[in-house]
Simulated assay, not measured.
Amino acid sequence: MILSLKDNSVWWQVQHYSELLYVLVVRNLKVRYRGSFLGVYWSLLNPLMMTGLYAAIFGTVFASYYKNSIINYVMAAFTGLVIINFFSASTSQALASVVGNGALLNKIRLPVSIFPVSTVGANVFQFVVGVLPILEIVTFVKSHSLINMLALFLPLLALTLVCTGVGLFVCGLYVFFRDLPYFYELIVFVLWISSPVFYPAAIVPEKVKFFLNLNPLSPIIESIRQIALSGTLPDLTLIWGALLSSAIVLVMGWVCFHGWRSQFMDLL
């Protein structure tokens, strides 16, 4: 009987959290795109423009690393850009989510973590509607394999976990350090430079590669490129590396956030 009550309590909490998450994701999207002509498809504008710029500057130089095909380089650069843009947008928005809803938290008892998670969720929806169809089409054209098309969801799951972990960490830290957004812009820039976004990972010297491999976005980008562009079956080593590093980041972010949570209300 006691176990049954506990199970019902856990299920109720999960259901309540899911309903709140849905409401906040919808609210986030409505506020973000109210009056917008293209809506979520604006998220494609920046990576498309930057891809064209990179192709014009580096296309002929780096094409040899992509089977001497500028088209392959264009798709590789686009893939890297949409990943880093997703990370930057979701974590930067998550950073201010708790402080920005401080007045609401002081009036209504809500699970604090719902705010950074909902910002990541809104960006996941935007990614699924805007970017994912393009990646799936490219994957099908290159591999003609349903396995590759389904496997594409695994590194994207890893990306979501990384963004959630980092989002929880930075939004908790922002409660204590209000100068964090300025410093975080520098961190995102370092992650962008240290990720194989517009350059192939093969050009990185071995002495530096170890440090760049500490970047959790690198295995995600490489895994997506391997699945979508190589035309071969998914590399399980790359997928496993992406999922493992993302799980570590998520756990670290969750532990830090919940360790600090008891101090939030005094500072909001």
Rank of each mutant, 00 (worst) to 15 (best):
L3W: 09
S4W: 11
L5C: 10
N8A: 06
S9T: 09
W12V: 05
V14D: 06
Q15Y: 06
H16Q: 06
Y17D: 02
V25S: 07
L29Q: 04
L38V: 05
L45Q: 04
L45W: 04
L48T: 03
L53N: 07
Y54H: 01
G59T: 04
V61C: 11
S64E: 12
S64K: 13
Y65M: 12
K67Y: 07
Y73T: 05
Y73H: 05
Y73C: 10
F78S: 04
V82T: 12
F86R: 02
F87Q: 10
T91V: 02
S92V: 03
S92H: 05
L95D: 04
A96C: 04
V99R: 15
G102V: 12
L105S: 06
N106G: 14
R109A: 09
N123T: 01
F127G: 00
G130C: 02
E136F: 01
I137A: 05
K142D: 02
L146S: 01
L146E: 01
L157V: 15
L159I: 14
T164I: 07
T164A: 11
G165L: 01
V166R: 00
G167Y: 05
L168V: 01
L173S: 13
Y174L: 12
V175N: 14
F177T: 15
F177V: 15
P181M: 09
P181E: 04
Y182M: 08
Y184M: 09
E185D: 07
S195M: 05
S195F: 04
A202M: 14
P205L: 10
P205C: 13
E206N: 14
K207S: 13
K207T: 11
K209H: 14
F210H: 12
F211A: 15
S218L: 10
P219I: 01
I220K: 00
S223M: 06
I227A: 00
I227D: 00
S230H: 03
T237G: 08
T237R: 08
W240A: 08
A242Q: 06
L243K: 11
S245E: 14
S246L: 11
A247H: 15
I248K: 12
M252Y: 13
C256F: 15
F257V: 03
W260E: 09
D266L: 07
L268S: 08
